[in-house]
């Protein structure tokens, strides 16, 4: 994984949401923390080109988010805060297959890939279910399957354990820790990222601290207290 921000800045309606930022990310597991409205989600959306920099540039594995949006999104998958909105087609299997459409696979290859990713997350029994009938934990796993079926190099997750009950929280947490992909997790759940390789702490649109989890989380707790 090679993500680079070069004086990249994000603005919304004349307001700077992420101030000019220069950094590079190569660790396998990165956490992003900060108070509400600190710019975490915008930062994450800049990585896969959903938010383009108003100034500077962002590259992902050598692809510029402004010029090669489709290629960047092929490299970096994104799980949204509300996975309900991420499942686009009514039946889970059909939705997962939708992500493979642009790859021009045969029907058999597509079905095999869908079955494999469902089995990987232990949700093969949900394949024929309707998205609006799934529980919070099932939806989160379904969203993971729908993104990872395309085999992105990087997976970005925006508050993946938000609003989950204890059982689903544990299930999603275990799943995240078992992922082989490079992951960037935005979370208020500090225990989830406590053993990650690196944590970024955003405050008021700026990268306030950057380093090992224990040190950065301690700074965050000081500020939030």
């Amino acid at each position: 994984m090679d993500i680079r921000f070069e004086q990249a800045e994000a603005r919304f309606e004349g307001r700077t949401v992420v101030h000019p930022l220069t950094l590079s990310l190569s660790e396998r597991r990165i956490g992003v923390i900060g108070l509400n409205g600190s710019g975490k989600t915008t930062f994450a959306r800049m990585i896969n080109g959903l938010v383009l920099p108003a100034a500077g540039k962002v590259t992902v594995n050598g692809f510029d988010t402004g010029k090669d949006g489709d290629k960047v999104r092929g490299q970096a998958g994104f799980i949204f805060q509300n996975p309900q909105n991420q499942i686009i087609l009514p039946i889970l299997k059909e939705d997962i297959a939708l992500g493979l459409k642009s790859r021009k696979l045969s029907k058999a290859e597509t079905e095999a890939a869908v079955e494999a990713v469902l089995a990987r997350f232990g949700i093969a029994h949900l394949g024929e279910r309707r998205a609006h009938e799934l529980s919070g934990g099932e939806l989160q796993l379904a969203a993971l399957a729908s993104v990872l079926v395309t085999r992105p190099d990087i997976l970005i997750m925006d508050e993946p354990t938000n609003q989950l009950d204890l059982r689903n929280h544990s299930l999603v947490e275990r799943t995240i820790h078992s992922l082989d992909e490079n992951i960037i997790v935005i979370s208020h759940d500090l225990s989830l990222i406590a053993d990650f390789d690196r944590v970024l702490f955003f405050h008021e649109g700026r990268l306030a601290h950057d380093g090992p989890p224990a040190e950065v989380i301690a700074r965050y707790r000081e500020l939030a207290a």
Binding site: D70, R73, F80, I88, L98, S102, V147
Partner: peptide, 18 residues
């Protein structure tokens, strides 16, 4: 919600140029 769904469609590359 429509905004978020549109972002999800973009993020998943469903409308990626062939």
């Amino acid at each position: 919600n429509a905004d978020e769904i549109a972002a999800a469609i973009d993020a998943r590359g469903v409308r990626a140029q062939k």
